[in-house]
Design a protein around this nucleic acid. Structure first.
Lengths: 129, 129
DNA sequence: TTGTTTGTATTATATATAGTAATACAAATA
DNA sequence: TATTTGTATTACTATATATAATACAAACAA
């Protein structure tokens, strides 16, 4: 999987890296159980510091997206089961509320927003229905 | 409108303030043309620094949500017209893509996500259809 | 005119975060 | 035993955040 970071972005590198990996998993570019590059390898490839990559990996581990073995390195976790009854996290709900507010103020109709979400969901490899 | 900031949050105060005001406008708690408190007033009420409030106001002005007159202070901009053809901004699209990825990985179905969005849209006072 | 209020600019300071760098350590493995 | 892994530690620099004090120009009221 190709990962590109924007050095000029206001988003921290470790956070950009975290986001890219989450997108990679959701889109199926990274399969469950797939082994990720080592901290040092990826840091070398991206031209950034070891500890920056480590911070991203540790964050993804804490969030449950990666399983990390001291020797075997980091690999993608097994996917959660889809739950129609799954309650979205408080955090997700608040972020979504702000996003909807901005979209609405910019003139985007609920219908357009819905269509956009559907299009994005279709890009995800995860079964979503 | 009641504004509450979380001092212990990792989100900067000026950004929290910006977000609260955007939500207030979208939900109709702040009407178009409505006058906001002065920088000094709001800073006093919230117990934070003048320049922190000023930073939030300046940001909202730059984004088009507020109109600021040197003498008359800050007031809410007139709403954009709803546009079915309005293309969502690149930034919105990317943020939404990440959010959908996280939701999908957490087991939330596309249908649940859609229902959540609809519920949120209904809380907005802006006409959205 | 004079005085006040507005947003805004400036300067200084303190703290926290981000990122890099170098080094080292424990665990696992060849 | 030697190497590779994630991880911890320490030090340093740069930037962002927030506060504080002060000042200024524009707009308005008296």
């Amino acid at each position: 999987m190709l990962i590109s970071l924007k050095l000029e972005s206001e988003v921290p590198l470790y956070e950009q890296l975290r986001n890219e990996i989450i997108l990679g998993i959701a889109k199926g570019l990274l399969q469950p159980e797939e082994k990720l590059p080592t901290v040092r390898q990826l840091a070398d490839e991206l031209g950034i510091n070891n500890m920056t990559v480590n911070k991203a990996y540790a964050l993804l581990k804490q969030e449950g997206y990666l399983v990390i073995d001291r020797r075997h390195g980091a690999k993608v976790s097994l996917p959660f089961k889809k739950q129609t009854s799954a309650a979205p996290s408080e955090q997700l709900e608040q972020k979504l509320e702000l996003m909807v507010a901005e979209a609405a103020l910019q003139g985007l109709t609920a219908d357009s927003f819905h269509k956009l979400c559907s299009a994005i969901y279709n890009k995800m490899h995860i079964l979503h229905n």
